[in-house]
Design a binder for these strands. Sequence first.
DNA 1: ATGACTGATGTGATCAGA
Length: 280
Amino acid sequence: MRIATWNVNSIRTRYGRVVDWMVREDVDVLAMQEIKCKPEQFPHDAFESAGYELAIHGLNQWNGVAIASRLPIADVETEFPGMPGFLKGHEGPELPKEARAIGATIDGVRLWSLYVPNGRSLGDPHYTYKLDWLAALTELARTETDASPERPFALMGDFNIAPFDDDNGDPTVVEGVTTHVSPAERAAFRELESAGLQDVVRPIVPTGFTYWDYKQLRFPRNEGLRIDFILGSASFAELVTEASIHRNERKGDAPSDHVPVLVRLDRETSDDGDLPMIFG
DNA sequence: ATGACTGATGTGATCAGA
């Protein structure tokens, strides 16, 4: 099974490019972020005619997440316990939830497509929201890895954190000045790892960015960030046999500012009994 | 070329992104 994550930055603008890539790369499951539309506005036909079914969570023109899959999608959720909401100019525990999370079970694997809040700037209420959102997400990871460690589980998406210094090649992103590289954000990312998850791409692809700002020739200069990740439980990680960051998807006409990140899982399927998979 | 922001809304300017 080939599973990928991609912040598409508007699916209506880019569905042709996205579906072409999925077919070309033989992708079984794609977790999308920033679809920027409601379900009724989503280009269903492009995906369904390519053989994918959809689970979509979009409330308005901002954020929005979805999962496309060749295999049946079950047990869809659009928030996790304790997930905070946000409304500019307001505070409190009862703010409206944003469309930043969708979870589903596909072929026995529990997957989430996640668009972690940006944070905007250090000290902005959105920055606190980002950290609170990550803390609740960490509890989800802890619960999953504790309660059902045998079920492969992964958080996939745009985490809006560059965990290591080498993940930041953008000269305008500076610790102490901007979000994405602050000690608190990096600590929140480490907590996800403490909760039983691991970056399943980095051991195979140790360097490389997943995002380049549209401005200031960031891509030609290769001044990007590594902020899109697939974090898997131990039972997920042990199935991963390949990983790749698809840098070419930042080229050409009307690219997203993010590129897809892909892993291959090799596992015995339920109806194969104890026959091993033939790799190749 | 990978080249000096892009997208949604809505029709002009604003918000959002990281």
